[in-house]
Computed example of a mutant assay.
Amino acid sequence: MSNCQLDHSHEDVLKKYQSQKEFLPNEMVPLFNQFFAKEHTQLVLNEMFHLLKKYDLSSKDEKEQRNQQILTLLNNM
């Protein structure tokens, strides 16, 4: 992922998730629901935003890699 100097809000991450939801594995939906029900550090929000950013345009291999990183974040919340 590219390093971005912008801090992304909870709302930014939620909007990005909603725009990418149809491209994500269905089993992630309940985990994202739990994720958005909690507060997170700025670091976590930024990381999740960038994992979701342009997810739909990623190659199959890139999606698999992102899925693992997303699941790691979701399962550690």
Rank of each mutant, 00 (worst) to 15 (best):
L45V: 07
M28S: 01
L57H: 04
P25S: 01
H8A: 06
E22V: 08
L51R: 05
S58H: 06
E64Q: 05
L52Y: 03
L51D: 01
K15C: 05
Q5W: 06
M77E: 15
M28P: 03
L57D: 04
Y55W: 02
D7K: 13
H50E: 10
E27D: 09
L51W: 02
D61I: 12
M77A: 08
L45M: 09
Q68A: 00
L57A: 05
D12W: 07
P25H: 02
E62K: 13
N3T: 09
L6S: 08
L24Y: 00
L31P: 06
V29F: 11
K53W: 05
Q65C: 00
Q42L: 14
H10K: 14
H50L: 14
E47F: 04
R66G: 01
D7E: 13
L45Q: 10
K54S: 13
E11R: 12
K21V: 03
F23H: 15
Y55L: 04
E39P: 13
D12V: 06
M48I: 05
E62T: 11
L24P: 02
H8I: 07
Q42A: 10
R66P: 01
T41V: 12
F49W: 10
L24F: 00
K21D: 03
H50D: 08
T41L: 07
K21Y: 05
N76S: 14
P30Y: 04
E22K: 14
L43Q: 13
F32H: 10
L73Y: 04
L73S: 06
H10V: 05
Q65I: 02
N33Q: 15
Q42N: 15
L14W: 12
Q18V: 03
S19P: 07
Q20W: 07
D61G: 14
S58W: 00
N33V: 08
E64S: 03
E27Y: 09
H10Y: 11
C4N: 04
Y17A: 00
F23V: 08
R66F: 03
F32G: 09
M48R: 06
L31Q: 15
S19N: 14
L24C: 00
L71F: 02
N76L: 04
L14E: 14
S2N: 12
I70P: 03
L57W: 03
M48E: 04
N3P: 06
K38M: 13
M28T: 03
N3V: 08
S19C: 10
V44L: 13
D7V: 10
L45I: 07
D56N: 11
L14S: 13
Q65N: 07
K63G: 02
F36Y: 11
A37F: 09
E62N: 10
V13K: 12
E27N: 07
L24R: 02
K16I: 04
H40W: 14
E62G: 05
H40C: 11
K54A: 10
F36L: 09
K21E: 11
L14I: 08
Y17R: 03
N46M: 10
P30H: 05
